[in-house]
């Protein structure tokens, strides 16, 4: 019952920002929001209302795959697909997720470090592994990858297969 109430409260907090709302599981609600609205949305759900806490940021690479008719080989179609960031907020059993789609050609989103200082580690992880720039982040030093890791190579992108392949272009 409390989970349902919490989810409903999250829905009412997000009603101005949500492009669409979805309930993927009984204890979860997903809000698709525009990346411009990320900061005000986080402000509304967490800073103002203390709805749970920011539990994790998941980055996704929703690459568009195409299958070659003759060879049956799968490859990435660069004309489509996008990156996505999922901000998971947890309150007891309830989980609210803000989903932000980010295009490959302009992989930028506002940093929310100004709102929650502890979020820096999560953002740096997504920045390094997926090549998403968090605009206004106070610290953009390397976090996980080695110091000699080549610039512009993002290992968690679906297009990344190995460092040798990346070096070949």
């Amino acid at each position: 019952m409390e989970t349902e109430k919490a989810l409903e409260l999250a829905e009412s907090l997000m009603k101005d920002f949500a492009i669409s709302t979805n309930r993927p599981e009984a204890n979860r609600v997903d809000f698709v929001i525009d990346r411009k609205n990320l900061k005000p949305a986080v402000d509304a759900i967490l800073v103002n209302k203390h709805w749970g806490y920011l539990s994790a940021i998941t980055a996704l690479d929703n690459a568009l795959w195409k299958v070659d008719e003759t060879t049956k080989e799968k490859s990435i179609d660069p004309s489509g697909g996008s990156l996505e960031l999922l901000y998971h907020f947890c309150q007891a059993a309830a989980v609210a997720t803000l989903r932000v789609s980010i295009p490959y050609n302009d992989p930028k989103v506002d940093s929310i470090c100004g709102l929650i200082s502890s979020v820096s580690l999560y953002e740096r992880e997504a920045a390094e592994l997926y090549g998403i720039e968090f605009v206004g982040a106070p610290n953009t030093d390397k976090l996980l990858l080695p110091d000699n890791w080549p610039a512009g190579v993002y290992p968690m992108r679906k297009a990344f297969t190995s460092l040798e392949d990346s070096a070949k272009g």
């Binding site: 993927p24 599981e25 979860r28 539990s55 994790a56 998941t58 996704l60 999922l86 998971h88 947890c90 989980v95 997720t97």
Partner: peptide, 19 residues
């Protein structure tokens, strides 16, 4: 599908997101 799985590890909440 996508699913979030949370368990209490000795150090606190452990979260898995599976797609």
């Amino acid at each position: 599908g996508e699913v979030i799985s949370r368990v209490e590890a000795p150090r606190g909440e452990l979260l898995y997101f599976l797609k």
